[in-house]
Amino acid sequence: MRLRRSLTHHMVTTNSQFDWLFVVPGLLLIALLGLPLVALFLRALDKDFFVFALSSTALAALRLSLTTSLISVVITLLVGTPLAYILARWDFPGRAGLEMMIDLPVVLPPSVAGLALLIAFGRQGVFGNWLSMLGLSLPFTTTAVVIAQTFVSAPLFVRSARLGFAGIDPQLEEAAHVEGATQWQLFSQVMFPLAGRALISGTMLAWTRALGEFGATILFAGNLEGVTQTMPLAIYLGFERNLDMAVVLSVVLVLVSLVVLGVMRKLDDNRR
């Protein structure tokens, strides 16, 4: 007999005879998820960690990764939240199709995403042609990095936020309207607090996905230190010039991702 956490976080006692049915498969997955990270840390600590972590290439890549992923997540919040609300509350023909289209970049291989972006917004792309007429060229710019990150990460936020909004009882919204709440009051005092967890977890997913974006970036934005070479690109190319460097950069990225996850969890806990 042992104690278990129930749904409401009370401990319950249950029969522990079949515990191994949970523990053995669970351990297999824990090993798969955990061992590569352990190996990375062991290898990185074995090296001159700070020499590599503080090298100009690493710092330039980290700075670029943090700024681009932050910009992309802010853009996602600004344009993704209204869209999520529309998808949650409005009924219109083609909504299901639209939802599928929005979800698609999440499941697409990043190489397809990068190629699609290049074909669409490249200098000689289908729509990039118009930009060229305005004298704008996106490929090989930091803007292209942000676009690639937003393309692959925004759907994660929209999906999460949509489910969050959809889970709010419409009667609450009606009540707020009846009470004379403005649209802003409705959102800031009813919708955002109630959908808070979904919005935060969506933000967390989108930010970490943007931080880790690789395939679409290298295809659409190219690779130039300080301009388009984000952490994942520096790691991939470092793998060939200097494996130690790649290992150390990977650990730095793991740590940054952990901080992002930790901050988001903390915010989430405070809301409960």
């Binding site: 490929p139 090989f140 290298i218 190219g222 690779n223 130039l224 301009v227 388009t228």
Partner: peptide, 12 residues
Amino acid sequence: DKVLANVVSYEN
């Protein structure tokens, strides 16, 4: 140097 200043990407 002028040519390298024109480089927009170093491919793999």
